[in-house]
Simulated assay, not measured.
Amino acid sequence: MKKLLAPVAASLAILLAATACGTDAYDATEIPPKEQPSVAAPAPPATQPDCGNPLMSYTPEGAMPQPGAMPARSYMAKIQQRGRLIAGVSADSLNLGARNAVSGKIEGFDIDMIRAVAKAIFGDPNKVELRVISSPQRIPVLQKEQVDIVARNMTINCSRWQDIAFSAEYYRSGQKTLVPIDSTAKSTADLNGKTICAPAGSTSLDNLKKRNPQAIPVTADTDTGCLALFQSGKAYGISGDDTVLAGDVAQDPYARVLPERFSDEPYGLGMSLKHPEFVRFVNQVLAQIKADGTWMISYNKWLKPALGTLTSPPPSLYGRIPGQ
């Protein structure tokens, strides 16, 4: 039965990832991935750099500026003068950042975070250019300043703090594994010798190798890439954030997610290390939407149906000094 219906589910996944222009004037750009799904090579041993508590971001300073009145010579003023915020996002992670098959717009929880920043700068949440990026592109596009900010279910950790800056935590995910609905596996430990897909350049790939070295990791640059490998039988399962896997299950009735959760994945909005004032400003925005209920409205709309009720957003931790 699954082989007969898999093409239908795959077609839906491809439709969600399609990059046809939406009705938003800026919601139309894609940074092309350079991707071919491949077997992941074993990672060499590496020491995690010490950055203190990675969840500590830069402390907001002063009163939050009014929309349209960004401080002179700040990075926010540059964005305001340009007339739009440029954000790197996913277009195929259902409920986080995915293109609506009817409207053509990219929407989801991550996108709501970006639109909150745009609203704080311009007074208009729609003054955003969403650039579709793959998982491995998240850090390079910030280092090259091709985007102002990245919202693509990116885990905050010390290693990444060496290359980019993070906002305070805006969501806490965790890694799980998706398998065929008729699988007898009860945990990732039961997947010895099975091909398991995880996004390239992700903490999910690293965690999978540590959790079960006997599994055979394969990679794709996008969530849809992993789903396509699973549905075509080239991967037995998918390991990744529970937020992403919930979207995959919604597209494939012959898949299920194992209950085992074997990591914490705190999400942060990525920005360049060159603009600490922008990071402080974004932290003000996140603090505001966490306090006024906007964050909870977004969570309840996009993630609550699959992941359950939350009583509050994750706390924001501050105290990091730029350059450290």
Rank of each mutant, 00 (worst) to 15 (best):
I149M: 15
I111A: 03
D148I: 04
Q146N: 08
V147T: 00
D110C: 06
Q146T: 00
L130D: 01
G123R: 07
D148P: 05
K105C: 12
I121G: 02
L130E: 00
P140M: 11
V141G: 02
A118P: 07
I106D: 04
I106C: 05
I111G: 04
A118G: 11
P136V: 15
I121L: 09
V132W: 12
R138H: 10
A116E: 09
I139D: 07
Q137N: 14
V132H: 07
D148E: 04
R138I: 09
L142A: 08
S134E: 01
F122A: 04
G108H: 10
V132P: 07
A116H: 10
G108V: 09
I114N: 00
S103P: 00
Q143G: 05
F122K: 05
F122T: 12
K119R: 15
N126Y: 12
V102N: 00
V117D: 01
K144W: 04
K144F: 08
S135V: 04
K105D: 14
K144Q: 02
K105R: 10
Q137H: 10
S135T: 11
I121V: 08
I149N: 02
I139K: 01
K127T: 01
I121M: 10
E129T: 15
D124C: 00
F109G: 02
K105A: 12
V117Y: 08
R115G: 05
R138Q: 15
K105S: 13
P140Y: 11
I114R: 06
I114T: 07
V128D: 02
G123C: 13
F109V: 08
R131F: 14
D124P: 10
I149A: 06
